[in-house]
């Protein structure tokens, strides 16, 4: 039951992009076309689930050694090596998948959603299963927002936008309107 609550909270109520403001850079950067948005979403989901798993054990180790203050450094190292590892494995196992995901993978290291979810897992005191579920659900929430927004932006391309608002400003305003829609989920938690 608790897990269901975590999923609903991470996907809808506290959506990473729309309510917690994590992962805005890729959200604005790769949402111009639907297919790139799908590729990025898949890559992020994969890395966030794995990162939640690994950082859980790293955190246990840090607590055991009483060096929790090194958490930021340790987590970012884990995430960076994880991204590298995923890239190498993917290249060997499935070159086609690597080709479609390839360009997005290095970008994920600096996606604050990944480090963010690792930190949230620790702050909330989640156990192993809860951490992985939270990581995956948060990534699905990110994917949901990104894919919906890519659809909106494809429509924006073809509409008459005032000159001053063209490009990023109108995208941000559209995202604001989407965030209002996501506020509607607030009562669910």
């Amino acid at each position: 039951m608790n897990l269901v609550l975590i999923i609903i909270s991470a996907v809808l109520v506290n959506n990473f992009v729309m309510s917690r403001f994590l992962g805005i850079c890729p959200f604005l950067g790769v949402s111009k076309r639907l297919d790139t948005a799908l590729g990025m979403s898949a890559a992020v989901t994969f890395v966030m689930a794995l990162a939640s798993l690994f950082t859980y054990f790293v955190n246990l180790l840090l607590v055991r050694l009483e060096i929790e203050y090194l958490r930021t450094i340790a987590f970012i190292l884990v995430i960076a090596s994880l991204v590298q590892l995923v890239e190498i494995v993917l290249q060997k196992v499935s070159p086609t998948l690597h080709k479609s995901m390839g360009v997005y993978l290095p970008l994920i290291t600096t996606n604050c959603a990944v480090l963010g979810v690792a930190n949230i897992n620790v702050n909330e005191g989640y156990g192993l299963l809860e951490s992985v579920v939270n990581g995956t659900a948060a990534a699905i929430g990110f994917a949901l927002a990104l894919i919906l927004f890519a659809g909106v932006r494809e429509r924006l391309e073809n509409s008459a936008v005032p000159k001053a608002l063209r490009g990023t400003p109108i995208a941000l305003i559209a995202a604001g309107l989407m965030a209002i829609a996501f506020m509607g989920f607030a009562g669910l938690g």
Binding site: L165, T168, P169, G176, A179, I180
Partner: peptide
């Protein structure tokens, strides 16, 4: 209150970005 909630962030940033660009 909406201005200090999530949507307000996007809206204000978008409008200021447009103003600065102009």
């Amino acid at each position: 209150a909406i201005m200090v909630k999530a949507p307000g962030g996007f809206l204000v940033y978008g409008l200021l970005l447009a103003a600065f660009g102009t």
